[in-house]
Amino acid sequence: MRTTAWTAALVLMLDQASKYIVVHGMGLDRAGAIDLLPPWLNLRMAWNQGINFGLFSGEDAITRWGLVALALGIALWVWLWIGRGRHDARVTVSAGLLIGGALGNVIDRIAYGAVADFLNMSLPIWQNPYSFNIADIAIFLGAAGLVLFTGEADTKRRR
């Protein structure tokens, strides 16, 4: 559980620090866009009131607090599940990634009413219309890791 907690704490700190630096320090909330290595890496401010790609977005308090409750519920469920037994290091790190990312986006929803997305990666022949943040990357990697690595040790033991 210690690995999960440290991973979650690291993700949460990196996520919140990056959002503070980019949104407030660099003024992306006012500028709207800053090109870093166009078209490969750009900063594009997007306030996401929903989940991935703006799904389930809404400006009402029910949607906002419902998504906060859902994220906290998932993070708590993963935390309790990890605490119930021994898991491979990849599983505990994956759980920490997911929990830290979820908590980072929860803080945004509480503080701003929406999640601060700002990373945008495109190609010379394709302009990506979506932005994301470090918490989103951690959630994706954590969920993928839990799917890929959970149960792997049990399968090897049975063989």
Rank of each mutant, 00 (worst) to 15 (best):
R2L: 13
R2A: 09
T3R: 15
A5G: 08
W6A: 13
W6N: 01
T7N: 03
T7H: 05
A8V: 05
A9S: 11
A9C: 08
L10V: 15
L10I: 15
L10E: 02
L12W: 06
L12S: 06
L14D: 05
D15Y: 02
D15R: 07
D15Q: 06
Q16F: 02
A17C: 11
S18M: 05
K19Y: 00
I21R: 03
V23N: 07
V23A: 13
G25S: 06
G25W: 01
L28T: 13
D29L: 05
R30K: 12
G32Y: 05
G32N: 08
G32D: 11
A33T: 12
A33D: 10
I34C: 04
D35H: 12
L36E: 06
L37R: 02
L37I: 15
P38Q: 13
P39I: 12
L41R: 07
L41Q: 06
N42A: 11
M45A: 15
W47I: 03
W47E: 13
W47R: 10
Q49M: 08
N52F: 11
N52T: 13
N52P: 01
F53A: 11
F53P: 04
G54A: 07
F56R: 08
E59A: 13
D60Y: 01
A61C: 02
I62V: 15
G66C: 09
L67H: 08
A69C: 09
L70V: 15
L70Q: 03
A71W: 07
A71L: 07
L76W: 14
L76M: 11
V78I: 15
L80K: 13
R84D: 04
R86P: 00
H87D: 00
D88G: 09
V91E: 01
T92E: 05
T92W: 01
V93A: 15
S94T: 07
A95N: 03
A95H: 08
G96R: 10
L97T: 03
L97Q: 06
L98V: 06
L98E: 00
G101C: 10
A102K: 10
A102D: 02
A102W: 05
L103V: 14
N105I: 07
V106F: 06
V106K: 14
I107W: 11
I107H: 10
I107N: 04
D108T: 09
R109W: 02
R109E: 03
I110D: 01
I110L: 14
Y112D: 05
G113C: 09
A114Y: 07
V115E: 01
V115R: 07
V115G: 09
A116S: 12
A116F: 04
D117V: 05
D117G: 09
N120G: 04
M121T: 15
M121G: 04
S122A: 12
S122C: 07
L123N: 05
P124M: 13
W126K: 02
W126C: 02
Q127G: 03
P129T: 12
N133F: 03
N133E: 06
I134A: 14
A135G: 09
I137S: 14
I139S: 06
G142E: 02
G142L: 10
A143C: 07
A144S: 11
A144V: 15
L146H: 09
V147E: 00
L148P: 00
F149G: 00
E152T: 13
E152C: 05
E152G: 03
D154R: 14
T155P: 02
K156M: 08
R158Q: 14
